[in-house]
């Protein structure tokens, strides 16, 4: 269970969240929807403990994440950032193995067992032939997969991803999200991610969090009976009624109104 208790946060003068309260239970994959600059990234960073709330507390399974040290927190949440550093130069294996840096002794590097584990993980993502390559030699889409591999390798309970599909082509977006869907089920993990495309979100998430005007204004679950109506209403609200949302079977379709 994820719980925000009266959380306030601001960057210098700019208030992002004021007294944010909610709890989220019983989900596998939660999608954050909202326009740019509405606080999705800030929300995720608060959840990761990378930003500290000015007021209030953030609990995951009743543990205040800001009372944990980095090492303990890294077992609860792992992170795929939105911005990927393209100046970084490091072999892919070394990079993915960093996922468990905090679990190793200070003076130990990854051993052969870990090498096998990383290899099989990369194989699942069909990028095991990049294992010895330098990460700077990969395309941005491949690099994103490697970042994902590192976060998965970290083996935390909740995977937090900031716009994981924004730099991928259409096919890879679906590949990545369906891979994640399988991974969450087989490994019994949870995922929280931000995404712009409501159609993709509807296809792969079971819970939807809507952000507007620096507020989390609604949480919709797929299993709710009025899910489709609620989603139509919330998506229209996000885009200030400039889009029309309709459902065709199990798919959302959207039209931009002139």
């Amino acid at each position: 269970m994820i719980e925000f208790r009266n959380v306030s946060f601001s960057y210098r003068q700019q208030k992002v969240f004021d007294d944010l309260c909610f709890s989220l239970d019983d989900f596998t994959s939660a999608a954050l929807l909202g326009l740019n600059g509405e606080g999705k990234t800030t929300f995720l960073k608060l959840l990761l403990g990378l930003l500290k709330p000015e007021k209030g507390s953030i609990l995951i399974d009743d543990i205040d994440i800001n009372r944990l040290n980095e090492e303990k927190r890294s077992r609860i949440v792992s992170y795929v950032p939105q911005d990927i550093d393209d100046s970084l130069s490091m072999p892919v294996f070394d990079f993915v193995a960093m996922g468990r840096i905090a679990r190793r002794d200070f003076f130990k590097g990854p051993d052969e067992k870990e090498e096998e584990a990383v290899r099989s993980l990369l194989r699942q993502l069909s990028c095991d032939d990049h294992m010895k390559k330098d990460i700077s030699a990969l395309s941005s889409g491949q690099r994103r997969l490697i970042y994902l591999a590192r976060a998965i390798y970290q083996d935390a309970g909740i995977l937090v991803m900031d716009e994981p599909v924004s730099s991928l082509d259409l096919l890879k977006q679906h590949d990545l999200l369906s891979f994640l869907q399988d991974h969450l089920l087989t490994e019994n993990k949870k995922l929280i991610f931000s995404i712009h495309d409501p159609c993709l979100a509807y296809g792969y998430a079971d819970t939807f969090l809507f952000f507007k005007d620096h507020r989390l204004f609604d949480i919709v679950k797929k299993k709710d009976t009025d899910c489709k109506e609620a989603l139509s209403k919330d998506i229209s609200a996000l885009y200030e009624n400039k889009v029309r949302v309709s459902f065709a079977g199990d798919k959302i379709s959207m039209d931009v109104l002139e």
Partner: peptide, 22 residues
């Protein structure tokens, strides 16, 4: 001795913290 830990210097600060390094 600590060379594997110092390697985390190459990553951004947020990434490093999310990986569990102080």
């Amino acid at each position: 001795l600590f060379r594997y830990r110092f390697k985390a210097l190459l990553l951004s600060e947020e990434e490093t913290r999310a990986l569990g390094v102080d």
